[in-house]
Amino acid sequence: MIAILSAIAWPAYLSMSSKARQTEARNTMGVINRSQLGFYQEESRFADSISELVFGIPVVTENYTYKDAYTGGTPGLIDNTSIPAATFLFANPQDTLAVKDYGAGVVLYSANGVVTLKSIVCEEQLTAANIPLEVIDGSGSFSQGGMQLNPAATFDADATRCDGVHYKTVLTDR
């Protein structure tokens, strides 16, 4: 009887445990994005590091490493030369089989004379899929899956988006 109950409860426990660990990444990425929005409004530039943004957010935790590249790279924010009006980072899981990957970004764009900052957090659709999250500027297309940060956008929906196949939007500033 106990074995049957354990067999039923164990998968549910593992699922809830993974969701709790993923909440860390989702919340941390949201805090970093909101901090980046405020930092840009005060300094007219994006922050160079997480420590420049928010006091007390570690770049390496038990569940994730927050990096400037999808794999490898150094912990912290990207020094973005390919999309100069944007910044982004990745949450790489310590256990790639149990929790999902995340990407987050902020882009500055101007539409009809109005300058706007917009942020997004993208979540991998399937745990353990390990599909590299590409960041594009709107002039190309995804080869696998990723996040668009388009400084040439003319409306909100074109400024930020996740590819929708491998990554989905979980947080946005509007």
Rank of each mutant, 00 (worst) to 15 (best):
L126Y: 05
I83T: 11
Y40A: 00
I32L: 13
R34L: 13
A20D: 04
G145V: 02
A86V: 01
V54R: 09
E42H: 14
T74A: 13
T87L: 08
T23R: 11
V106R: 02
R174E: 15
F155Y: 14
L133R: 11
S17H: 12
P11T: 06
I50P: 02
I4E: 12
P84T: 12
G103F: 00
A91F: 02
A9S: 13
N150C: 01
Q41H: 04
T74L: 13
L89Q: 11
E52I: 04
A152V: 06
N80M: 04
A20S: 13
Q125H: 10
P75G: 11
N80E: 15
T87W: 06
I8E: 08
L37T: 06
S17E: 12
E43P: 08
A129R: 10
D156Q: 07
A128H: 08
V60K: 14
T65H: 12
L133D: 08
L89E: 08
T71W: 12
E24W: 11
R161A: 14
T61K: 07
I8F: 15
L89I: 05
V60N: 14
T71Q: 15
Y40K: 07
R26I: 00
P11Y: 09
A104D: 00
A9R: 05
D101Q: 13
R21T: 08
I83F: 01
E24F: 10
P151M: 03
Y40P: 09
K19C: 10
S119N: 09
G164E: 02
G56Q: 04
E43R: 15
S141L: 10
D163I: 03
G138Q: 05
N112R: 05
S44H: 12
T87C: 08
G164S: 06
Q94T: 14
M147A: 09
A157T: 11
A25C: 06
A20I: 15
H166R: 12
A152I: 04
G76M: 07
S143L: 09
A86H: 02
F90A: 10
G76E: 04
I78S: 15
A25Q: 04
F90M: 11
S49A: 10
S143K: 08
V135M: 09
D137H: 00
Q22D: 13
V135C: 05
A153Q: 00
I8N: 07
A3N: 13
S51W: 00
S15I: 03
K100L: 03
Y109F: 08
Q94C: 01
M29W: 01
A153C: 02
L108Y: 03
S143Y: 05
L53Q: 09
V115E: 04
F55M: 13
L171Y: 10
D101S: 15
Q148P: 07
S110K: 03
G72H: 09
D68N: 15
S51N: 12
E123H: 00
C122R: 01
E62Y: 07
F46D: 07
S51I: 06
F155N: 15
P93H: 11
